[in-house]
């Protein structure tokens, strides 16, 4: 326990000091990692903890990205209001889509999430008046306002700490959620859905809850990403973006919360650097996915926890 506390403090100190010491391109990569780490954890709540394998989370990423962009662009709302609008819209979408997909579970769940994703992508490409289609829309990032203080997101150091604080807050909230009785029920559902049902839990309600929570944090990630890039396009709904959290979670370790973050830290620089010199890097990702599920299905953190528990 004491060791763990030291570890936490150490990680925090490192993350904090990296903000003003990292060179520009590494800091930029770190900011992306913070944003995508939230996406990865959100996926872990859905798949790692509740056993619902979604292949369509990019829907919420894209919806929230536009949920933030459109109010800022058209009515010039401030940051907190637009972020709230983005998250509320995402939750509404989460409830509606979840209501259709979650009830059936299993293969139906996978297929329905794919269909949603592919259709939303088509719509985003088609409704140029709303989304800007393939070219997308750009906007001026609003200032971060706290009462009388205000900070500019055009300063990368500010962006670093801004995104880091969202990551830490998301981690604490989700950690709290999975340690709570609700989290235990979710794990029970993953392990044996019928038994959880027989004990008397309303399995549908809990699975829907996990789906909506996952949608909410995926949305947070999408909204932050559009804020960072000051841009959103139909590509934010791309099905490839739904594959990312699957890779992160499997490589890092499903059902560990920190594992998916490790996945992001390993995979994103890999894609970033390989992508520069080989345009077919996706085939490596494909091979990696096959390799991981066949040879290391527990993921890195999952294997580590196993080892610690055995010793």
């Amino acid at each position: 326990m004491k060791n763990r506390l030291i570890l936490y403090v150490l990680v925090l100190v490192i993350l904090f000091s990296l903000g003003f010491t990292l060179p520009t391109d590494m800091r930029s990569l770190s900011i992306d990692i913070f944003i995508f780490a939230i996406y990865a954890m959100a996926y872990d709540i859905l798949y790692g903890y509740t056993g619902q394998f979604s292949y369509g989370q990019a829907v919420f990423f894209g919806v929230a990205a536009y949920g933030l962009l459109l109010p800022v662009l058209h009515t010039n709302t401030n940051l907190w209001v637009s972020l709230t609008i983005a998250l509320v819209i995402t939750v509404v979408f989460g409830i509606v889509l979840g209501f259709l997909a979650v009830r059936l579970g299993g293969a139906y769940f996978v297929i329905i999430t794919i269909i949603f994703n592919l259709t939303f992508y088509l719509i985003a490409l088609d409704w140029i008046w709303l989304t800007g289609g393939d070219d997308g829309l750009t906007f001026r990032a609003p200032k971060i306002e706290f009462g009388v203080f205000s900070l500019s997101l055009y300063d990368p150091v500010v962006t670093y700490y801004f995104m880091l604080s969202f990551l830490l807050a998301s981690y604490l909230i989700l950690k709290r959620l999975i340690s709570s009785p609700i989290g235990k029920v979710l794990i029970a559902i993953r392990e044996n859905e019928e038994r959880a049902q027989l004990i008397g839990y309303n399995v549908f309600r809990y699975k829907l809850l996990a789906y909506v929570v996952s949608a909410l944090f995926t949305g947070l990630s999408g909204a932050l990403y559009s804020l960072r890039t000051r841009y959103a396009s139909a590509d934010y709904f791309n099905i490839a973006l739904s594959v990312q959290p699957i890779i992160w979670t499997l490589v890092g370790g499903a059902g560990t919360l920190t594992g998916p973050i490790v996945g992001v830290i390993l995979i994103n620089p890999l894609i970033y650097y390989i992508g520069v010199w080989w345009k077919h890097y996706l085939s490596i990702i494909g091979a990696l996915m096959i390799f991981v599920v066949i040879y290391s299905p527990k993921g890195i953190v999952g294997n580590l926890i196993n080892k610690i528990e055995k010793s």
Partner: peptide
């Protein structure tokens, strides 16, 4: 064959295969 009976993993394997075919 190695991931048969694990529905989520078969999806992952076929996504990987899909990427490899597309890139080839």
């Amino acid at each position: 064959r190695p991931v048969e009976g694990l529905p989520a993993f078969t999806v992952v394997v076929t996504i990987g295969l899909s990427y490899i075919i597309q890139q080839s």
